[in-house]
């Protein structure tokens, strides 16, 4: 009995063997080196960093108290911001769904459509909303229209990609059953595919609307409408108390949007 215990105690177990351990240390070292390289390379002007606390307190003092003047203006701009997000999300649905349909492996009509769909999704997603906005401001001039289009073009990639994935994940069995009953392709889609992706559709659209509200608050910085326009104006004229009010208003808007979306999500899912 004692011998047996001795034998047990002699056995060793290690989580990593020698080679794995070396590799792990190597990866750690490489990561640290990349971080050091990045910090040295980006050329930070350190005196400004050390001066930051003073700047913060000074800016805070200039902002306090937030100015109640122009609240009416701010409220209208907030409303415009929400309208931009809502309209853009609504428009996106009609543009993104066909793209999702051709970009999903199991519904795409052919290879060419699949690649076209993927190309649209990738190009939409790889360009930031602000860049899209700059582009559309240049084309349509400053204003709400440019902002809406910027949000639409960015959202197509988001909704299209997620809906495409939802379509790819459906259960194929009901599709087979509908085909067996002699249903045409369009009927199979409305009867077997649409009901299956409905919950995902609502979740994705609500999420994107939420994101679009945040995104449309900064569109004004490049002149594409919304609350950002008066924020930019206030910063440019050093009207710091107004800037404070606008920032508070944006936070309030985002919180309200968050509350609405979580309410909607719990209702539809």
């Amino acid at each position: 009995m004692v011998d047996h215990a001795q034998q047990l105690a002699d056995r060793i177990w290690q989580r990593y063997d020698r080679k794995t351990r070396l590799i792990r240390y190597g990866i750690l070292l490489a990561t640290l080196m990349v971080v050091v390289w990045a910090v040295r390379d980006i050329d930070i002007f350190w005196p400004w960093v050390w001066d930051a606390p003073n700047q913060i307190s000074s800016l805070g003092a200039r902002m306090w108290p937030p100015s109640p003047a122009g609240l009416n203006n701010i409220f209208n701009a907030l409303l415009e911001t929400v309208h931009i997000a809502t309209l853009a999300t609504f428009l996106t649905i009609f543009l993104a769904l066909p793209v999702a349909y051709i970009a999903a492996q199991n519904t795409t009509p052919n290879r060419a459509c699949l690649w076209l769909g993927r190309f649209i999704l990738v190009s939409s997603r790889s360009v930031n909303t602000i860049i899209w906005a700059l582009l559309f401001v240049a084309i349509f001039g400053p204003g709400v229209l440019a902002g809406i289009l910027a949000i639409v073009f960015r959202s197509i990639g988001f909704i299209g990609k997620l809906m495409g994935e939802a379509i790819e994940e459906i259960d194929r069995k009901p599709v087979e059953a509908m085909e067996a009953s002699g249903a045409s392709k369009a009927k199979v889609i409305v009867y077997a595919i649409v009901p299956q992706v409905m919950p995902a559709f609502f979740a994705i659209v609500i999420l994107r609307w939420d994101i679009n509200i945040r995104e449309s608050t900064v569109l004004g910085l490049v002149g594409a409408g919304g609350i950002g326009v008066i924020l930019q104006g206030a910063i440019d004229t050093f009207a710091w108390p107004t800037v404070a009010t606008i920032l508070i208003a944006i936070i309030a808007l985002v919180l309200v949007g968050e509350a609405i979306t979580s309410l909607l999500r719990s209702k539809v899912l």
Binding site: K173, P174, A177, A180, G182, Y191, Q196
Partner: peptide, 30 residues
Amino acid sequence: ARRKIGMVFQGFNLLDRLTVMENVLAGRLG
């Protein structure tokens, strides 16, 4: 031709999120 061939499946292959009536009427899709 498929309309004239009914099929019953091992996994039932129903549309879970639709009602029983909608599932039954799906047999008329053709």
